[in-house]
C-alpha cells in the first residue's frame, strides 16, 4: 500500500479527535484534552489545526488555508499542499467558496456563512498561562469561574501604557462562562468571533487541547467599564484596494522610511481589486 489514508490520520485517530471536537462544541470555550499525534511538521507550524482539519474534512469539501490572512505564504502553501496530496480534495483561495478554512492568526474579512468551518491554529490555549503557571490551578480557576486574575493582566496593561495594550490574543468570555484565548488573532478580529454563523474550532497540537465555538455563540472581549474594549487597526486605507474597514499589514518599501498599508486578507483585497476598487499605491 502506497497511499496515505484520507487526510493522513488513521480513522481511529480521527474518531478520537472528532469526539473531542463534539465535546468542545457542547461546552463552548472549554479546553478539551486530546491525544495529539506526531505530524510530519514541527510544533508551532500548525500541528493542532492540521489535526482538527484532518478530522473534519470529508470528500466533497473545498479547503482554504491562510497564514496571517494570506493564502500565499510558506505555512499556508505547505499545509494546502499537504492536504491536496493526502485527500485529493480541491483547494481554493476564495473565502466564500471554501467549506473548511484553516487559519493562523486571522479571521477572514468576508463574512462567514452557515455550513462553513473555521479551524484556528493555537500555540497556547490557556489564557491564564502567563499569570498562573500551575496547570492544576488554572483548571481549578476555570472550573470555579475565578477569573479575577485575567483582569489583573488588563489592569497591568493600563497602569503601564495608559490603555489596554494587548493587541492580539485578546481574552474573551464565552457565553458568560469560560474565559478563552482566541489564538493570536488581532483584537480587530475579536468582534467577528461573536454570533458567527460558521463553526469555529481551535486546535493546539503541542498543548494537546481542542476547544470550539458553535454557530451563533455569544463572545465578549474582557474590559473595564472605564476602559472599554476597542477593535483597533492601523488608521489608513488599503494601498491596493482602498478598503477602509479591513485589517492592514504595514509593508516597508525602501531604506528611506517608505511604507504602504495593504489588506492582510489577500483574498479580500484581490476580490475588491477585481471589482474595480483601487488604492493610492495600486499599480
Amino acid at each position: 500500500m502506497s497511499d496515505y489514508n484520507f487526510a493522513y490520520l488513521d480513522e481511529q485517530t480521527k474518531r478520537m479527535i472528532r469526539r473531542a471536537i463534539l465535546k468542545g462544541l457542547a461546552i463552548p470555550g472549554y479546553q478539551v484534552p486530546f491525544a495529539s499525534r506526531e505530524m510530519p511538521m514541527p510544533y508551532g507550524w500548525g500541528t493542532g489545526g492540521v489535526q482538527v482539519s484532518a478530522a473534519v474534512l470529508t470528500p466533497g469539501d473545498r479547503f482554504k488555508v491562510i497564514d496571517q490572512g494570506a493564502d500565499d505564504t510558506t505555512n499556508a502553501v505547505s499545509i494546502r499542499k499537504f492536504f491536496e496530496r493526502t485527500t485529493g480534495l480541491e483547494t481554493t483561495t476564495s473565502t466564500a467558496q471554501a467549506s473548511v478554512i484553516q487559519t493562523r492568526h486571522r479571521i477572514p474579512e468576508a463574512a462567514l456563512a452557515e455550513g462553513q468551518v473555521l479551524v484556528y491554529q493555537v500555540p497556547i490555549p490557556e489564557p491564564l498561562r502567563f499569570l498562573e503557571p500551575r496547570e492544576s490551578e488554572t483548571r481549578k480557576m476555570h472550573e470555579l469561574e475565578e477569573y479575577g486574575l485575567m483582569h489583573v493582566k488588563l489592569y497591568e496593561d493600563i497602569s503601564r501604557h495608559g490603555h489596554i495594550a494587548t493587541s492580539y490574543a485578546y481574552p474573551v468570555k464565552v457565553e458568560a462562562r469560560y474565559v478563552m484565548d482566541p489564538s493570536p488573532i488581532p483584537k480587530f478580529d475579536n468582534p467577528k468571533l461573536a454570533e458567527c454563523p460558521a463553526i469555529q474550532l481551535f486546535g493546539a497540537g503541542r498543548e494537546q487541547r481542542i476547544y470550539a465555538l458553535p454557530p451563533y455563540t455569544g463572545v465578549v472581549s474582557l474590559d473595564f467599564e472605564d476602559h472599554p474594549f476597542e477593535a483597533s487597526k492601523a488608521d489608513h486605507p488599503c494601498g491596493l484596494c482602498g478598503a477602509e474597514d479591513s485589517y492592514l499589514d504595514e509593508v516597508i518599501m525602501d531604506d528611506a522610511g517608505g511604507r504602504m498599508f495593504v489588506c492582510s486578507d489577500t483574498d479580500h483585497c484581490e476580490t475588491r481589486q477585481a471589482a474595480g476598487h483601487r488604492g493610492k499605491d495600486a499599480a
Binding site: E146, G148, L149, H151, V152, Y155, E156, D223, E225, H227
Partner: peptide, 15 residues
C-alpha cells in the same frame, strides 16, 4: 495589581 486582584476577583470592573 496585587492589591486590586481581590477586588477584581469579586467583580470590580472599573479601573
Amino acid at each position: 495589581g496585587n492589591v486590586g486582584e481581590r477586588l477584581m476577583a469579586v467583580g470590580a470592573r472599573h479601573y
